[in-house]
Amino acid sequence: MESWKTNRAVFWVLSLPGSFWLGFFFLTPLALIWILSFGEKTGIITIDITWTLENYIRALEPVYLEVVWKSIWISVLATVLCLALAYPMAFAISFAPGRWKPLLLMAVMLPFWINLLIRTYALIAVLRTRGYVNFTLEWFWEKADAVLTFIGLEQLELIGARFEPLPILYNNFAVIFGLVYVFMPFMVLPLYANIEKLDKSFLEASLDLGAGHWRTLRSVVVPLTMPGIVSGIILVFIPCLGSFLTPDLLGGTNAQMIGNVIERQFKAANDWPFGSALSFLLMYATFGALAIRSVLSGRQSGMEI
């Protein structure tokens, strides 16, 4: 591969579209929002940039910190569940016969082809009181009830006098379920890429040398796939933290996450400066988490040497 130093002109030309994109569609709007976060509302549609810190001070009020805290634990939970489900999934795909792999990967990515809003509405139809999960449970209940009646135990009402649908929509469970469902591919794909590269002879060596399956997983597989785990966690946790559609549609009366509060500042509350400050606060928190991670991983590799 040629070094960029040998042919600078080519390098600059090739980097032009990317830089343009980054500059105009990412950095410029970001800078505008950053400037706006130091603004003051002076009328319905007028904002003066007075470099006040009032928006940030307001963003640190307990009620907003409470919402941020709730967003963090919901996101952590969703990320952990994603990891727990995606890890065996990625493993299975990686160890599947060659001709199955593309099909299985496709099955993971297929939901991407459908709009998020439509997928979320479909989840409502699955989870609601008169939805497919409860229909299925009701069917099982009826069969069990018929069996109990047949053996003459119906008087004991072992499974209740009638079917009680599970309340699985419009609560925190539904929000986490929705987030796990939406972000699962972001966890599976980096894990798969990593596990695929894993030299399988390490596993054989570990087993040959007397380590059990569990020990092999813990001491060999997990450390070797750590980069995949970390990128999966980042790819899932960060968008979870800012999500607003899922809590809005699947959550109950206390589903509000920080993304919802920010969205409202740009719409109903018509307070763009405050919304901008909240957005940046969230971004600083994310940067902070990433910085901690890189410090920790730096220390770890330091120890290994």
Binding site: V63, N254, V261, N270
Partner: peptide, 18 residues
């Protein structure tokens, strides 16, 4: 008005966070 609108929005945030 914008000031009253903010009162409502803050109350609404507190209601949902409660």
């Amino acid at each position: 008005g914008e000031a009253a609108n903010r009162l409502y929005d803050e109350a609404w945030t507190r209601i949902q966070a409660a």
